Simulated assay, not measured.
Amino acid sequence: MIPKSSIGIELDTTESIETSRTYKLLDNKIQGYIDELEAVRQAIYKVLNTEKYEYPIYSFNYGIELESLIGKDPVYVQIELKRRVQECLLQDERIKSVDNFKFEINGDKLLCTFDVTSIYGDLTITKEVTI
């Protein structure tokens, strides 16, 4: 026999962003706590300095793939670097946009500068890669 009564279930479907409070890393040591914009800056630094697929402690979604760009045409590297930076940073729910990319080539180095808009404010980030 199949019951004919209904069960009332209420689900909370509101999403909330977890706190951004985290440990402050300075000179490879934990130096207290940071939150909001400085925590986002540190998260960006960490993800852009972690080679994707390199460390088993991180999921395959964490980090950025830069080693495969070494030796490639500088125009290709600029286009691909922009895509890869946006892809890895926009996974963070605190980051709303990554744009205004500027590139500067100096020998075998490419200096990439871009703006990050987060829920806590704006940042300008610089990343140097070997080409």
Rank of each mutant, 00 (worst) to 15 (best):
P3L: 08
K4L: 15
K4E: 15
S5Q: 13
I7N: 15
I7L: 14
I7M: 11
G8K: 15
I9F: 09
I9R: 13
E10Y: 07
D12S: 07
T13R: 13
T14P: 04
T14I: 05
S16T: 14
I17N: 10
S20Q: 06
R21K: 15
T22A: 13
T22S: 14
T22C: 14
Y23P: 07
K24A: 14
K24Q: 12
L26A: 14
L26Q: 15
L26D: 15
D27K: 13
D27C: 04
N28D: 09
N28F: 04
K29Q: 15
I30G: 10
I30D: 05
Q31F: 09
Q31K: 12
G32K: 03
Y33F: 14
Y33P: 06
E36C: 08
E36N: 13
L37R: 04
E38V: 00
E38N: 12
A39T: 07
Q42M: 03
A43Y: 05
Y45R: 12
Y45Q: 11
L48G: 08
L48P: 10
L48A: 07
L48V: 05
N49T: 13
T50M: 08
T50N: 04
K52W: 00
K52I: 04
E54N: 09
Y55D: 13
P56Y: 15
I57V: 13
Y58M: 08
S59N: 04
N61E: 12
N61G: 09
G63A: 02
G63R: 02
E65W: 11
E65L: 15
L66D: 00
L66S: 02
L69I: 01
I70E: 10
I70S: 03
G71K: 08
G71Q: 09
G71Y: 06
K72P: 01
K72F: 11
P74G: 04
P74I: 05
V75M: 11
V75Q: 14
V75H: 12
Y76D: 10
Y76K: 06
V77H: 08
Q78A: 07
Q78Y: 03
I79V: 10
L81N: 02
K82W: 10
R84W: 07
V85D: 09
V85K: 08
Q86E: 15
E87G: 04
E87M: 06
C88W: 03
L90F: 07
Q91R: 11
E93R: 11
E93Q: 09
E93N: 06
K96T: 04
K96F: 00
V98A: 03
V98T: 01
V98N: 02
D99G: 04
D99C: 06
N100K: 14
F101S: 00
E104F: 13
E104G: 02
I105D: 06
I105Y: 07
G107N: 07
G107Q: 02
G107M: 02
K109V: 09
K109H: 10
L111E: 12
C112L: 02
T113C: 03
F114M: 01
T117W: 03
S118P: 02
Y120R: 03
G121E: 07
G121W: 03
D122W: 01
L123M: 05
L123A: 01
T124A: 07
I125W: 09
T126A: 10
T126Y: 05
T126H: 01
K127S: 04
T130V: 10
